[in-house]
Design a protein around this nucleic acid. Structure first.
Lengths: 237, 237
DNA sequence: GGTAAACTCACCGGAAATAGCGAGTGGGTT
DNA sequence: AACCCACTCGCTATTTCCGGTGAGTTTACC
């Protein structure tokens, strides 16, 4: 089993297209012997991306009705870090109970587990596995595979990111340590004077770094340079 | 072994203080039979937090020399999603080689694996395990435990977050559509004039949005606001 | 030993951002 | 009906940033 997962991860990593990835991910159903596997990005902006084995009808209904606004699985994701059983969510509210019923009718299993995946740039996605079975069988399944879910979710996310937004992956821009320092401090909210003070250099010097970083990043101003550096993983907050 | 890890995670989750957490995490050394385990936040904003079994001397030296600027483990983390072997990093540069040597002298193992942990609000941390052994033994260790590392890192992060910053749990900034537009365009490199033009509003109005977004995000200037919005996933690229 | 790159410092004029004041409309909530 | 919030527009003064040009030292790499 662990071997199957390892080869699965390798295949995910080497996918050349989203179509291929889709097929590979759908293969997880056979490995885990479950009904559905789902990956979808939950970004507030940007193009949403979904990859699911659900019935198309349910997926379209979900999308058209913007059910992510009431879906406890999605709502619960924001505050979580590790895989969580759908049963542990709050299904008390009326909208939630109705959603659960509709999901059942739409072919979603009565059991499920989701893992939040976060990336740089505030990327946020959910990887879920759903199945229909008893609570006991599900609990056994969870305790057997919990650590794998996180890994799988992150691999899928990384692969989609590489395929969909290749420009954000492994930047070819290399900033010098000082340039990195400069952008990091500016991104942290310091103005040039403060940043220079912190780095124990003159403000003039600091400006040289900002300028060179800006030109390397092909950015039109400081804000743009910081944004690009953040997006490319050259700095962090 | 898997049982040990499960009970470890439970203990992490129920820690009542950072001191206790520190002790619990240090216990990982016995479970995995390794020399060092380390968790440290890599944010430049907010209070840095570190939890390491390294010699204090090395930790202080690292901090005072700002070695995170040359540490390939840290630099590599920004662009990664899953656990990565230190051996897979770029140690070619002279500064990197020197750093590696110093780390060895400082008691850090010759082998290591790190996993990036990201949270809402742009939180970013690294969980690392380091040991001294042969490449073969290390490879066996990695393939045996890879999925667990991610889970452990996230549990520790969640626990620290809950203990250290309880106020940030469950709190989110919500930007209005226009505020989002404004920050997105500024992050894309447009100046205020261009951005206003694009949104078909006056520059004065645009400025109001920037101001309100800035105050919501508790940012000190436009660059800071864009950086925070990016880190929190409120805008993209 | 030469070249390239990183690091340090300086001036100036024009452009942009910030801080403070103000006003009015429309939509949704209580 | 009162309230809050998003959305739109305006002025002024001050601070900060941008773009261009300059030059010197040290370190890294052929």
């Amino acid at each position: 089993m662990q071997n199957q997962i390892e080869t699965f991860l390798e295949r995910v990593e080497h996918c050349k297209s989203l179509v291929e990835l889709n097929a590979v991910v759908a293969g997880l159903r056979d490995i885990f012997q479950v009904n559905h596997v789902v990956y979808h990005s939950v970004n507030s902006t940007g193009e949403p991306y979904a990859l699911a084995t659900y019935d198309q009808q349910w997926a379209e209904y979900y999308e058209s009705e913007a059910l992510y606004r009431v879906d406890p699985v999605v709502l619960g994701a924001f505050q979580r870090f590790h895989p969580y059983n759908w049963k542990s969510l709050d299904w008390e509210k009326k909208t939630a109970r109705q959603f659960f019923q509709e999901a059942q009718d739409g072919g979603v299993g009565n059991q499920g587990v989701s893992v939040p995946v976060r990336g740089p740039n505030g990327e946020f996605a959910l990887f879920s596995i759903s199945h229909t079975c008893s609570d006991e069988a599900w609990a056994r399944f969870l305790s057997a595979h919990m650590p794998n879910f996180l890994l799988i979710g992150h691999y899928i996310h990384a692969s989609i990111r590489a395929l969909e937004f290749p420009e954000t992956v492994g930047s070819y821009v290399v900033l010098s340590p000082r340039e990195t320092d400069a952008l990091r401090l500016l991104g942290a909210g310091l103005n040039r004077g403060r940043a220079a003070e912190q780095l124990k250099i003159s403000e003039h010097t600091l400006r040289v770094y900002i300028e060179s970083a800006r030109s390397k990043l092909n950015a039109s101003n400081t804000t743009h340079a910081v944004a690009k550096a953040l997006a490319q993983g050259l700095i962090n907050i």
